[in-house]
Design a protein around this nucleic acid. Sequence first.
RNA 1: UGGGGCGUCGUCAAGCGGUAAGACACUAGCCUUUGACGCUAGCAUUCGUAGGUUCGAAUCCUGCCGCCCCAGCCA
Length: 572
Amino acid sequence: MSSENDKINEPHTDSDNGSKVETKDFIRTIIDQHNKSGRFNNIVHTRFPPEPNGYLHIGHAKAICISFGIAEEYGGVTNLRFDDTNPTKEDTKYADAIMRDIKWLGFDWGDRLFHASDYFDKLYEFAVVLIKKGVAFVDDLSAEDMREYRGTLTEAGKESPHRNRSIEENLELFEKMKNGEFDDGAKTLRAKIDMASGNMNMRDPVMYRIMRATHHRTGDKWCIYPTYDWAHGQSDSIEKITHSLCDLSFEDHRPLYDWFLDQLEVHHPQQSEFARLNISYTITSKRKLRQLVENNIVDDWDDPRMPTLSGVRRRGYTAKAVRTFIAKLGVSKKRDTVADIALLEHCLRDELNETADRRMAVIKPLKVVITNYPDDKIEEFDAINNPGDDTAGDRKVYFSKEIYIEQDDFVEVAPNRKYFRLAIGKEVRLKHTYYITCDEAIKDDEGNIVELRCTYDPESRGGSTPDGRKVRGTLHWVSTHDAVDAEVRLYNNLFAKESPDEDDDFLEHININSLEILTGCKIEPSLKDLQVGQNCQFLRHGYFCLDSKYSSKDKIVFNRSVTLKDSWAKKK
RNA sequence: UGGGGCGUCGUCAAGCGGUAAGACACUAGCCUUUGACGCUAGCAUUCGUAGGUUCGAAUCCUGCCGCCCCAGCCA
């Protein structure tokens, strides 16, 4: 992992007395305790266990950063394990996308790519061990009856009438289950724990179900498949995982995992649960994201408005910005927290401010004729690429009699003294070149302003004058003679509500202005050289990137990754 | 009414008995050839609440209150 990321996780420093005060989250605190007691011989070996049934989103990025990041920090490694215990829902195409996204984020599982299905044989053996111990049994209850027998949150459940079958009978029945002698759903293997437990997970949970489905890796070898609860803890144990980090929803499954491991007397990882990541104005629910795709509300899983990793990548987010965001958020057990999307945006701006070259792009063009500028003259100016980075160099821009400026940079009458853009009779600076003063606005029959007539001050060449007069406004511009046409896509929050997730009818909160497509935008010619994956700043607008999906040789399409902060917009 | 968890600034989050870090957001100002960036200042007399212990409590104890998760042969 990059050294930048290490910095993020450095302990904060107490500046008052100069001494370092470590402030660690609860997971790192637990690991420190283990290292002190020697419980895992100072080894930290984690795993990230996605189910290959969908695309990774930014919520998963948190889990990835925690599992991979913490292991790395402690000199350990992380396994990637696909939890593929339900063949009806999983597919290899998702696995490929998941691996691509994890790599993009900057993490590496080395040669430790595993599957829960790698352990189907071992899991079967383990199940036999539990049957022989008399703590697992084959049940004939239907799914419906089982629900009935389970009881409720406040009432104890009833034991299955098949709970006390002999070990021999259970062994025989379980083998027949495996051999396909029963119909799908006809029987299950259950752990024999406690139907009166306050923890529903301990009320004789199902370990195996009969399901004739072709598994994407094991084919038709099995007609019984382990449940997640039965497979997960043992998979961790088999891989000698020391710290199983997962989200809060598995908190009350931990007693069950502990129980299985204790019964089996095998390596026993420590599970710790942290709160999932929620972000304002968007959703981090695989199910709901799928709805957006299937209802064609968004382009696809990689729509730049989507919080999927493929979506934010296409939007122009960098992996580093995502990692920084997650690191700044921290780790806690507080549920229902909603991270401010403004922090995510800040992390991107903060990075791109340092790394992205500046360019000029007029997204809503208004033609300007500089009446006192020679008709055929074209002047060359050096334009600095990044004022904060001397090594970024510069480029040429070419000024001429006719240019485009932004429609939003002109009003006929300046509203007040604080307004310092262009207005009739007002003077502004054109970035890198000259001062111009507006003399006249030309309108069409409907009264729309279609062209401006301005005069320039030859003395202001380079952006200042000998008399040193102050010009507060600086506008970006593009010459008409060399402007390149482009399409620009402006994105806003996908949802108009801060927490759309709290309603089931979350689709009602879709922001109808989440995408604005502008055509006929005029960009400076050097922008033609930009590559997919490169970020650049459109001066005074924000950070943009080439859209990887719709850009082609004949058509340039830009995505706005994030706007620049705009204190003027707030004042207005 | 069972079990599990959580309550510190608008948001996220430190703090682990010695008198409330930081970040984002926000506000005001400075700077500025991006109304960006940068810089300066402000922003919790108070830690869900009520008691108790203590010289001293966000931190320990007790009782309340609030919020969330769990009744898939999903993960």
